[in-house]
């Protein structure tokens, strides 16, 4: 009995080391990331970049390389970048945008040795080297919506949306449902652009003129809205990445995408020689969806934070459907 356990242990350790060895064949784990905006956009792109940086810290000095292509809003350019990174022998290529899925479907079969990851998406196209990942933004939206309603005692809330698509839309839908449950009225605007900061600012002013005291929104254009909130002493709730640095005294909380658990899993599978073939959901359940509270600068009732945890648990348990009106 004891002997067999020992053998098993030795074998598994050996296998693990072998696996590690294959991944680090040339010693350096090379990751490339292609994204539609920038690594410091306070939203979607930044969330993944920071997670990759964090992943890099788990490697010994000099054994991790991270390259990036920013502003790849044009899919044709992104496709070329993805292909080029695979060509250059990167171990993992992260195509961080829903619009890149179909390109991967085309490229991945040509590079069976390379692992690809893409999101937000749910489909790995039956490829053994594609991993799809998706943020269940509506979960966070629901919780923050109800929290916003409670925090403002049922006052008016405003949502500054970029375009009615992707996780921006699901976050906003969840927020609306949650806010309504919490007893608040919500007004929603879309500027039809991910980057138009002045339209975002004007939308925020409109919301506040009509009596909204707390706003939320997504995309890299939200700094426009946050600056209005700051000027008028309102409150802001961020999504996708920590927006507290944008306005320390006004951002109540941020929904943060922490891709670390998913990346860790992808990496450990790669060590086992599995390069993809699965899809992940970023949820409250796996700790990937996080709420960062600005307790340092704003007085937040601890009961509110407790309520948020409770709501998240209920969503995890399936007791709350964040999209059911």
């Amino acid at each position: 009995m004891k002997k067999s356990t020992l053998v098993l242990l030795v074998v598994s350790v050996a296998a693990l080391m072998l696996g590690v060895f294959t991944v680090h064949a040339d010693d350096v784990f090379r990751v490339a990331m292609v994204m539609p905006s920038k690594i410091n956009d306070y939203s979607f792109s930044q969330s993944m970049y920071e997670a990759l940086m964090k992943l890099g810290e788990t490697f010994p000095e000099g054994k991790f390389e991270l390259q990036k292509s920013e502003d790849m809003f044009n899919v044709a350019d992104a496709r070329e970048a993805i292909r080029d990174y695979a060509d250059m022998g990167f171990d993992l290529v992260v195509a961080h945008g829903s619009q890149y899925g179909t390109s991967l479907q085309e490229i991945a079969p040509d590079y069976p040795e390379t692992a690809f990851a893409w999101g937000n998406g749910t489909d790995f196209y039956g490829q053994p080297n594609i991993t799809a990942y998706q943020a269940r933004a509506e979960q966070g939206g629901y919780v923050l919506g109800e929290i916003a309603a409670k925090f403002t005692n049922g006052a008016k809330l405003g949502v500054c949306g970029p375009v009615e698509s992707g996780d921006a839309k699901t976050y906003i839908d969840g927020f609306k449902v949650g806010a309504k449950k919490g007893g608040s009225e919500v007004s929603v605007t879309f500027t039809s652009s991910f980057s138009d900061v002045s339209a975002m600012a004007a939308a925020a002013e409109g919301h506040m003129d009509e009596g909204a005291v707390l706003l939320t929104g997504t995309s890299q254009s939200i700094p426009g809205a946050v600056s209005v909130v700051k000027e008028r002493n309102g409150h802001w709730i961020g999504a996708q990445w920590d927006t507290i640095p944008l306005a320390e005294n006004n951002v109540l909380a941020s929904l943060v995408y922490d891709w670390t658990p998913i990346l860790d899993d992808i990496l450990s599978k790669m060590t086992d020689g599995v390069l993809g073939g699965s899809a992940y959901d970023l949820t409250f359940a796996d700790g990937g969806l996080k709420i960062v509270w600005n307790t340092e600068n704003i007085e937040i009732d601890p009961e509110l934070i407790a309520l948020a945890d409770e709501l998240a648990e209920k969503i995890v348990a399936g007791e709350i459907d964040p999209l059911a009106e």
């Binding site: 829903s98 937000n120 996780d167």
Partner: peptide, 11 residues
């Protein structure tokens, strides 16, 4: 259907 709602047409 998938809920990702990326703005693009079908293939």
């Amino acid at each position: 259907e998938m809920g990702t709602r990326a703005s693009q047409t079908a293939l």
